[in-house]
Nucleic acid binder design. Structure first.
Length: 466
RNA sequence: GGCCCCUUCGUCUAGCGGUCUAGGACAUUGCCCUCUCAAGGCAGAAACACGGGUUCGAGUCCCGUAGGGGCCA
């Protein structure tokens, strides 16, 4: 039997970090074993589900490159299927109609609470002989009264629950809607899901789900419960901890490779390896090297990985990705040779595409602004003759290239017996406005003779004479 | 409260009874490289939650305790 996994988010918001990791694990598992990956939208909660969330989730999945083979299915399209299966259980006597009203149940629960007991439905309607077709009813599963229900978890081993802990729970509500556990089981069963990989917040649901499979005489899939992702204070990751939606990372200039790599490595490992291409992940991912403990989300490491990918992907691809960020800043740039060169010299010092776009500003701005401190420190009367000499030499330079520029600078430092830094920094401020940039020769070469001379002359005019 | 899960450096983790004076990565500190900033290189500080067992020997197995988390309410 071939592997079939699924990712089943409820559309109550964008795809978040935790959901994305669950999706990644399911996707990797399916791809690793040559199986299929199914996407299902659990939108039975009509009040909280939105169309917008659905498209945001799909958007996030596509951005991460988590392509699905079937779906997206929607639970809201499948209500008749759940009802049909509920009927079937009713007919086989594995489930029964319950006429107890919510008020009654609530009263009994309060009573139990008062006595310090955990309330479990006492089976009032379990052995009712006659139906009351005119009264509203819920459908409950007739669960075993004793024994153990064992969950064979691929990550945690056997987890055992006492059947006494589980009461005759509702599978279909009075309004005809399935309960969460019922819908999930019917979906997983009818979609032939072989491996349910999900967050460990579902562990406690699993015995109930197993009872449904058994009542239905369906094959029980394998379960794998992955620990959750925590924020820095070790509580469940939430908005308080900063950006949690995957798409927000795209906007902050992260690459999908970095996000996938980071999330895959969060809770899973392969020896000492940190960097994984998608193909490597598919090749190496297995559930037995998924850890049991909860993992704290560490934005710094994600950032480091992002920087790594920015430095190591082909420059042209990075350049293409930066363009929209430059557009946002009002610079129209084309993916030409010059631009790729710019990206290539800048990317070493950028950890996000946003940083990269920010650092590229002086290549596109018509007139650069000097940083106050930089100007004060380096555009001084001491620097004036040096810059003037440089202007002279540059005007007659045959090739405006790194080696030639290097030669010119060498001549000046030698003649004047100064250090390179004494000329490089003033020039840097004159050309970029600040004290930080790629190598000054690279900057000059890319900027070109005309721009360089223009900016140097402007700097000269700005230096106070004394 | 009941049930269930988890516990190695600040963080992600390696470790599947002896090779652990516990390895790698991020972050951090120092040094090197150097035209600035990065990147890179080298070095450092930094952990087996605690207590009992089992065993010749435990980070590794078992049982408690503590702490964290989840589900049900």
């Amino acid at each position: 039997m071939s592997v079939r996994t699924r990712f089943a988010p409820s559309p109550t918001g964008a795809l978040h970090i935790g959901g994305a990791r669950t999706a990644i694990f399911n996707w990797l598992f399916a791809r690793h074993y040559g199986g299929r990956f199914i996407l299902r939208i659990e939108d039975t909660d009509r009040n909280r589900s939105t169309e917008e969330s659905i498209s945001e989730i799909l958007d996030g999945m596509m951005w991460l490159g988590l392509n699905w083979d079937e779906g997206p299915f929607r639970q809201s399209d499948r209500l008749s299927i759940y009802q049909e299966y509920a009927e079937r259980l009713l007919a086989s006597g594995k489930a029964y109609r319950c006429y107890c009203t919510p008020n009654e149940i609530e009263r009994r629960r309060k009573e139990a609470e008062k006595q310090g007991r955990v309330y479990r439905y006492e089976g009032t309607c379990r052995n009712l002989k006659s139906h009351s077709p005119d009264k509203p009813f819920a459908i409950r599963l007739a669960t075993p009264e004793e024994g153990n229900i064992e969950v064979e978890d691929l990550i945690r081993g056997t987890i055992s629950f006492d059947a006494k802990e589980i009461d005759d729970f509702v599978i279909q509500k009075t309004d005809g809607f399935p309960t969460y556990n019922f819908a999930v089981v019917i979906d997983d069963a009818t979609m032939d899901i072989t491996h349910v990989i999900r967050g460990d917040d579902h562990i406690a649901n699993t015995p109930k789900q197993i009872l449904i499979y058994e009542a239905l005489s369906q094959n029980i899939p394998k379960f794998a419960h992955v620990s959750m992702i925590l924020g820095s204070d070790k509580t469940r990751l939430s908005k308080r901890h900063g950006a949690t939606s995957v798409v927000a990372y795209r906007e902050m200039g992260y690459l999908p490779e970095a996000v996938v790599n980071y999330l895959a490595r969060l809770g899973w490992s392969y020896g000492d390896q940190e960097i994984f291409s998608k193909d490597e992940l598919i090749d190496k991912f297995t559930l037995d090297s998924v850890g049991k403990g909860a993992a704290v989300f560490n934005p710094e490491k994600l950032l480091w990985l992002n920087g790594w990918y920015i430095r190591n992907k082909p420059a042209e691809e990075i350049a293409e990705l930066v363009i929209p960020f430059l557009h946002k800043k009002g610079f129209q740039v084309a993916l030409d040779e010059r631009f790729i060169k710019i990206v290539n010299i800048l990317r070493e010092r950028a950890k996000t595409l946003v940083e990269l776009a920010d650092s590229a500003e002086y290549f596109f701005a018509d007139e650069i602004k000097y940083e106050g401190a930089a100007r004060k420190k380096f555009l001084t009367s001491d620097a004036l003759p040096i810059i003037e000499e440089l202007i002279n030499k540059l005007s007659s330079l045959r090739d405006f290239t790194v080696p030639e520029l290097q030669r010119i600078f060498g001549e000046i430092t030698e003649k004047r017996e100064i250090k390179l830094v004494q000329i490089a920094q003033p020039v840097r401020v004159a050309l970029t406005g600040g004290t930080v940039s790629p190598g000054i020769f690279e900057v000059m070469e890319v900027l070109g003779r005309e721009k360089v001379l223009e900016r140097l002359k402007r700097a000269v005019s700005q230096i106070p004479k004394n």
